[in-house]
Amino acid sequence: EEEVKTVDKSKWKGIAVYVDHVEGDIHPVTFELIGKAKELAAKIKQPVYCLFAGHNIKSKAHEILHYGVDEVFVYDYEELEDFRIEPYTAVFEDFIKNINPTIVLVGGTTLGRSLAPRVAARFRTGLTADCTILDVQENTDLDQIRPAFGGNIMAHIHTPNHRPQFATVRYKIFSAPERSEKPSGKVTLCDIEEEKLDSKIKVLDVKKKEKVESLEDAEVIVVAGRAVKKEEDLNMINELADLLGAQTAGTRPLIEAGWVDPRKQIGLSGRTVKPKLIITCGVSGAVQFVAGMNNSDCIIAINKDENAPIFNVAHYAVVGDIYEVVPKLIEKIKNGELS
């Protein structure tokens, strides 16, 4: 006889978004999650909440009210200044116990992917990693779709008998709502007993990462593939990128050759990007590469092989030689007109 543990789903209400930030600088994935949370919440007619934990962040909390959430719960404590797992988990636990959200969304950043599993385990509930599609049933069950096996298969996962339902989502998967001039909703300050904020971790130093404009933030990207024969031939790719205000990225072979900065690698073992425009130059379109860019709004692919797999995901497939098409394109952009 199968005995299924059931949960009273009516006791769990609202969709909560964890505000991912470092020292009050809110990570843009947060707004993308708010956008998705609003969409889901509208379907089940429930509110959208945010959890914002840190130190000296009260003023920043009001910014979130411009994105259409119902309530932002703020825990502002010195112990939360730097990210340490125990106090952050304690605050998250306190928030969930007070609010009972049915769904919790956390950004799939390095921080979120450390925090979300810890909190989910504390509640003995499920967590679905790196979701790319989220939808909700009338009974508040969350449909979660995620890639696994390095993007070679997709899995549809649900958490039917537990609450809250946790999901992490990477940056650039969903779209952020427009910021409205007028704020709405409210900010609520929360208290927690200070002894819950104890930690066995001492942060000795926090270093800013070297400032390179992150590839994820680029609106336009030009990608160099293995068709580029010599390092100096990257000049034409860089020139095209400059003319378009774009960043240059590369496929793995170019990173391995040392021609392109590893932080500019797109794909499974690199970055996931979702720019408004991506132009690939002599890229074959291996699944590991495509997994990192197939959500881009507009994909233009230049490849001389008309059967190249990249053309399956390209919106505009340009069958041609990059050594001819790219210089001509550069020339036309410089002249600003059709020849």
Binding site: R124, T125, G126, L127, T128, P147, A148, G151, N152, I153, M154, A155, H156, I157, H158, T159, P160, N161, H162, N294, E306, F311, N312, V313, A314, H315, Y316, A317, V319
Partner: peptide, 18 residues
């Protein structure tokens, strides 16, 4: 707590201009 409902191959968008 999580259950895999279904697994399937990733969709490939074939609508494109060549």
């Amino acid at each position: 707590p999580t259950q895999v409902k279904r697994i399937f191959p990733p969709e490939i968008d074939t609508t494109h201009v060549m």
